[in-house]
Design a protein around this nucleic acid. Sequence first.
DNA 1: TTGAAAGCGTTACCAC
DNA 2: GTGGTAACGCTTTCAA
Lengths: 275, 275
Amino acid sequence: MSVTIRDVAKRAGVPLRATVSKVLNGRLGVRKATREKVLQAARELGYIPDFSARSLVTKRTRTLGFLVHARHTLSPHAFYGEVLSAAEQEARKHQYHFLFATFNQGDEAVPLTLLQEQRVEGLILAGCDIPRSLIVQLKHGGVPLVLVDNHVPGVHSVVIDNEGGAYEATSHLIRLGYTKIGFLCEWLDDLSFSERFAGYKRALHDHGLPFRPELVAEGEPRTPGSGHIAAQRLLDQGPPGSGRCGQRPHRNPGHANLSGGWPGRAHRHCRGWVR
Amino acid sequence: MSVTIRDVAKRAGVPLRATVSKVLNGRLGVRKATREKVLQAARELGYIPDFSARSLVTKRTRTLGFLVHARHTLSPHAFYGEVLSAAEQEARKHQYHFLFATFNQGDEAVPLTLLQEQRVEGLILAGCDIPRSLIVQLKHGGVPLVLVDNHVPGVHSVVIDNEGGAYEATSHLIRLGYTKIGFLCEWLDDLSFSERFAGYKRALHDHGLPFRPELVAEGEPRTPGSGHIAAQRLLDQGPPGSGRCGQRPHRNPGHANLSGGWPGRAHRHCRGWVR
DNA sequence: TTGAAAGCGTTACCAC
DNA sequence: GTGGTAACGCTTTCAA
């Protein structure tokens, strides 16, 4: 069987496992000589404390949960894999680990169970597909929570600078000398797209270019082929001012999800377009 | 604090926590009436067994480790995120979870620690960047192991059907009527590319087309721009039979890594090429 | 500083 | 079937 704290104590010649525990956890109250003996014995035996036993008593797991909607991780365009990877590398510096779980429709209980089992100390929820009700519930339960690519008032979140990004992209095209720059997106009611739309318009304005509603086209909400559809609509352009263009007000800007249903693809579908 | 098995026992009116444990784990040896009482009490209290306590005694964590080289997960072209996601969804059906960890140079101890801490019961190692020595060591340690996109004799592994895929791709082009089909790859000494090369040649042969060495070009091993380089070389074609073409023998086919250093990009760089 | 003992929340193993 | 008890491996507390 694997080596336990008993074995270390015995080998070090100290009668008590408590002493070993103290030494290995860097607590004081142990004579230097004793400490050395213990350290050496542990090294020789290749002792690694049992995770379950330790966390049973300390009530800490140094583990975080990472949740993504199953729909996204399967898409090669989703960037949540990169987020997870980077988060893990940062967490490791603090001796934290990540439990990964996909979020499937109807699995609302899973994250809660992870918490109640005392497996994880906090959660990162990636994507805007995690039900808002669940997020609110977790938040109320006092669970340390961070959202990625999503936003709920009062919850920590990491989001994309949509406005700034669109501003930069548009400015770049303008600097290259283009003056007729279109704007494609899934649908303007989505907060993330409306933010980009704002950045697009601000850039036009700052560079003294007119905003032309006929150069704006929406595709279909939460549809993979949406960018194509939008482009098609722009190319098949009817008379300016038709319903699909321009500055219509957002129905529920406060409640719209950040970055729509296809966040990983957003940067491909929502871009400056040059004619 | 959270609700423990004691609370359930008390509420159910049974004097023993052991009984509760039995019921909740579906063991027999409990009268139906008692069982009902326990079940109801557990439901009412929202009881979830503590993970650490449970695994301390059972010695099981129902948790698997998923390791990928840090270099890969950061690349949007790597498909390991999809592998992880799919693996997790399958594992969940069996009530298993995944601990995710990136593998960093010099972190050889990490997977071993995870094992010794009794945190994970087995490991999935994705990519060909995990040191072979580590794999062999784990294997000898009796750790349940599965490699993805990598191969070591005697270790379970999931690999791409390189030969078959290239055969299909080439056949497809032939069926479309093309007869002058090129083959680009990073370098032929790599097992995965040489397998694809074999499939390519087999398809040509099966369809009665000649193999023309001047249509084969290598790029640079383990270089992101490799496909471009190979294409350039093919286009700048010198006289047939120059060193970069054809059927030279593989130095160490048995020891070559599967699918080179850029597995996620392989399908983009190594393809049938039509002129 | 060191020694002894209690306890974390579960499951497993006994007798009854 | 049912009930009690021991044990898992560790940390913590409290006397000595």
